[in-house]
Simulated scan of single mutants.
Amino acid sequence: MPARHGRHFYLNDQRRAQSVYRRTLSDAGHNLLSRERVVAQGVAEGMTNGELASSMHMSEATVKLLVSNIMTKVGASKRVQIAVAVAKARVV
């Protein structure tokens, strides 16, 4: 029983830490995750999906998915709107 009880506390601590981590990653209210923030920054710098994939050691399909998630979260329909959101977040 003690091991189970200890694991329960460990899992609660992990969940609490993840929750705090996600809250600190909110980007001007858009709640971007860490990888999404890195991709958003790359998009703002004019990097292509291929360049982002290579620099982040992931597939181009994963980058496309992350860009799509970012667009949904910031309400963008074009990549340039991601760059605008990143620029606004820096000013705020």
Rank of each mutant, 00 (worst) to 15 (best):
M1W: 11
M1V: 14
P2S: 14
P2E: 15
P2D: 14
A3P: 11
A3H: 10
A3I: 08
R4C: 12
R4K: 13
H5E: 12
H5C: 10
G6Q: 15
G6F: 13
R7A: 15
R7D: 10
R7C: 09
F9T: 08
Y10R: 11
D13V: 09
D13P: 10
Q14N: 10
Q14L: 15
R15I: 13
R16K: 15
R16Q: 13
A17L: 11
Q18G: 15
Q18I: 09
Q18F: 12
Q18N: 15
S19L: 11
S19C: 12
V20E: 14
V20Y: 06
Y21H: 13
T24F: 05
T24N: 07
T24K: 03
T24G: 03
L25F: 09
L25K: 05
S26V: 10
D27S: 10
D27M: 13
A28E: 05
A28K: 04
A28M: 09
G29C: 12
G29F: 10
H30W: 14
N31D: 14
L33P: 03
L33F: 12
S34T: 01
S34M: 13
R35W: 14
R35P: 05
R35A: 09
E36Y: 08
V38Y: 02
V39D: 06
V39W: 04
A40Q: 06
A40R: 00
Q41T: 04
Q41Y: 04
G42I: 01
G42D: 06
E45M: 04
G46V: 03
G46F: 07
M47P: 00
M47K: 10
N49G: 11
N49H: 07
G50Q: 04
E51S: 01
E51Y: 02
L52I: 09
L52H: 03
L52W: 04
A53V: 01
A53T: 01
S54I: 04
S54F: 08
S54T: 08
S54N: 05
M56V: 04
M56C: 05
M56G: 02
H57Q: 05
M58G: 00
S59K: 07
S59C: 06
S59V: 04
S59T: 08
E60G: 02
A61F: 09
V63R: 00
K64H: 10
L65V: 05
L65S: 09
L66H: 08
L66N: 07
L66D: 03
V67D: 01
N69R: 13
N69L: 11
N69K: 15
M71E: 12
M71Q: 07
K73E: 04
V74D: 00
G75M: 06
A76F: 06
A76M: 03
A76C: 07
R79S: 03
R79G: 02
A83Y: 02
V84I: 08
V84N: 07
V86R: 01
V86G: 00
A87M: 03
K88E: 08
K88V: 07
K88I: 07
A89C: 01
A89R: 03
A89W: 02
A89H: 03
R90P: 00
R90I: 06
R90D: 06
R90M: 12
V91E: 04
V91F: 07
V92M: 11
V92S: 11
V92I: 09
